[in-house]
Write a protein that binds this DNA or RNA. Structure first.
Length: 591
DNA sequence: ATAGGGTTAG
């Protein structure tokens, strides 16, 4: 890819024209694009005398009257000051007045628009800059690359990357960090890694971005390894890199890691500010401890909407809908205004605790009292709310009546409800829409197949399987993790790679015999393959979650809660199996 | 003189 675009950007006029036209179309296409929030980073004013905008205007006037504004360095300072005060109108007017601009001048203007979230204007100024005959420099490039990140515009990002190469800026840590971040947001971790590997020198920010990139792209383990490597290389962590490490641990779901990271933050003497504290709440909640999450929440000196929402979400996915609602009440009592995400978390909490009426109440309250326009995620929660409680028709009519774009998650929620309540016809309808949106997602086919299987519709099961084969859709391998003695043990289906494999299978066999006596009947409907029943049983009995649980029983003392983590949905048979194990063995908690 | 990294859902 890189080579290809490099050719386009070869030092020919064609390359340059192509580059400009892409920039131009990017600028135009961004008229419709959503303006996401830009980090607010306020630096000290470069003109210390001007504490506020009126002082600045006065100074600007004085300079004009005295004929001093034509001095480029003076104009630069005023321009910068205007952008810091977010008075882009004045800064742009001044910018246009200056005929001979230097690169600093362009940079300040481009950065000013970027900081204010005025991406269209930012792109246009950047385009004019390139057109003026100057090549983008190492100061403007990070700003523009960041715009590509915010718009997830990978094409434009790659083009800029080629520019970086061509102009020899790839050794600049600012440029490289912006590139890595852009690639990570666009989910191409390989390219982010390549930029990182090629850097001759890396600073704290380079490492931070790369750690965050791994987490963003679903590989938190690698991110945490990188953190260790960073420290081995003698780089001293700061709070921001710790936030990234906390996020990685959250995604990993490892309670041991969570505690180690928490301890490390304490040892380093980092105080919990709003962001680090909130990240901690999220980490503990996702690693399975609602109590520790709440402890962090209670211990925070300052909390904002995000902190409250994180704690509400935590109660939600632990099935504590009432607690989530109580906390929401407390949040309002503290004068904190909820945002759209707070409501997603609340609705989610209600649907997972069967609080249908409360959920609907929240859905109205959100719109009527807080003026939050429901987006597709809110609708998905309400569909789930109706769906789980068996109100499939209401779920469907809600979907039919909504006038915003429907996404895969929405249809998946409806199918999920159909699965619970065995509504094959509606499931088919929803599946048509779902597969149209995501024809390559194996999970959707499997869900549909399971619904057919549950209804005994074997012909249709075969049809789904055939469809998958024809389109070369492969099932994503399922994995289950379990943490024992601070070590993560990972199992796949029929896995024999574990050192205690022999004991695990022996334990599983005994367990199965015991549970079958207690009434457990294996349900081979959840095996998708077209094979004979005995083989089906073999596969079913060695599902990764069963192996992990068997190992958990062997490796932990009596009475220890067993906590397993999966990448895919638990199959129906394993669900039943786990319930039996809970009744007859130790407490099993599944996440 | 100007530039890069941080929190909640999905």
């Amino acid at each position: 890819m890189l080579k290809f675009t490099l050719q386009i950007l070869a030092p020919s006029n064609h390359g340059r024209r192509r580059f400009l036209s892409v920039l131009e179309s990017a600028a135009h296409s961004q008229i419709q694009a959503p303006v996401s929030e830009f980090p607010k980073k306020f630096k000290l004013l470069s003109l210390p005398k001007c504490k506020n905008i009126s002082q600045l205007r006065k100074l600007h006037c004085e300079l004009i009257v005295n004929g001093l504004i034509s001095e480029l360095s003076t104009a630069n300072k005023i321009l910068h000051a205007y952008t810091l005060h977010k008075d882009l109108e004045s800064s742009y007017a001044l910018f246009c007045d200056v005929n001979v601009k230097n690169s600093y001048f362009w940079s300040v203007m481009i950065g000013g628009f970027a900081r204010a979230g005025e991406f269209l204007s930012c792109c246009r100024v950047f385009r004019d800059y390139v057109r003026s005959g100057d090549l983008p420099d190492d100061y403007t490039l990070p700003v523009v690359i960041k715009i590509c990140r915010n718009f997830m515009d990978l094409g434009m990002g790659r083009l800029l990357h080629c520019f970086v190469f061509k102009c020899g800026f790839c050794c600049n840590t600012f440029v490289a960090a912006a590139l890595m971040d852009m690639y990570a947001k666009c989910k191409v971790i390989g390219d982010a890694g390549r930029v990182f590997d090629e850097m001759p020198e890396r600073d704290l920010v380079s490492w931070t971005v790369m750690i965050g990139a791994y987490t963003e792209c679903g590989n938190p383990e690698e991110g945490l390894e990188l953190f260790d490597r960073m420290r081995e290389g003698g780089i001293v962590p700061d709070k921001i890199v710790m936030v990234n490490v906390v996020n990685a641990s959250a995604k990993l779901g490892s309670m041991h890691k969570a505690r180690v990271v928490d301890e490390y933050v304490k040892v380093m003497g980092f105080s919990l500010d709003v962001i680090l504290g909130t990240a901690m709440i999220d980490m503990y909640a996702k690693c399975g401890s609602l109590e520790l999450a709440r402890e962090k929440f209670d211990g925070m000196r300052e909390r904002n909407v995000v902190s409250w929402s994180a704690m509400i979400a935590a109660y939600g996915y632990h099935g504590e809908g009432r607690e989530a609602l109580d906390l929401f009440g407390m949040m309002l009592g503290n004068g904190v205004l909820p945002n759209n995400i707070t409501f997603v978390s609340l609705l989610h909490a209600c649907s997972h605790s069967g609080l249908v009426d409360k959920g609907l109440e929240i859905f109205s309250l959100m719109q009527d009292k807080y003026g939050v326009r429901p987006d597709v995620k809110h609708f998905t929660c309400v569909v789930d709310l109706f769906g789980r409680s068996g109100k499939l028709e209401r779920a469907l009519s809600l979907i039919e009546d909504m006038n915003i774009e429907k996404d895969a998650g929405l249809w998946a929620a409806l199918i999920g409800a159909c699965r619970i309540h065995g509504d094959v016809e509606l499931a088919e309808k929803a599946a048509t829409s779902l597969l149209e949106l995501q024809p390559q997602n194996a999970g959707h086919y499997i869900l549909l197949s399971n619904i057919y299987a549950k209804a005994g519709r074997w012909k249709e099961v075969a049809k789904v399987r055939e469809l998958m084969t024809r389109q070369r859709i492969k099932k994503i391998p399922g994995w289950t993790w379990i943490e024992v003695d601070n070590k993560i043990h990972k199992f796949g289906v029929g896995d024999h790679t574990h050192v205690q494999s022999r004991e695990i299978y022996e334990q599983l066999k005994q367990l199965r015999e015991k549970l079958e006596l207690a009434g457990y009947v294996p349900d081979t409907n959840f095996v998708l393959h077209d094979i004979d029943d005995e083989l089906k049983l073999d596969i079913l009995h060695t599902h990764s979650e069963k192996l992990a649980i068997a190992f958990g029983l062997i490796a932990t003392p009596e009475g220890t809660p067993i906590r397993i983590t999966k990448n895919l949905r638990v199959c129906g048979d394993c669900h039943t199996f786990i319930k039996f194990v809970s009744d007859h063995e130790k407490v099993t908690c599944c996440s």
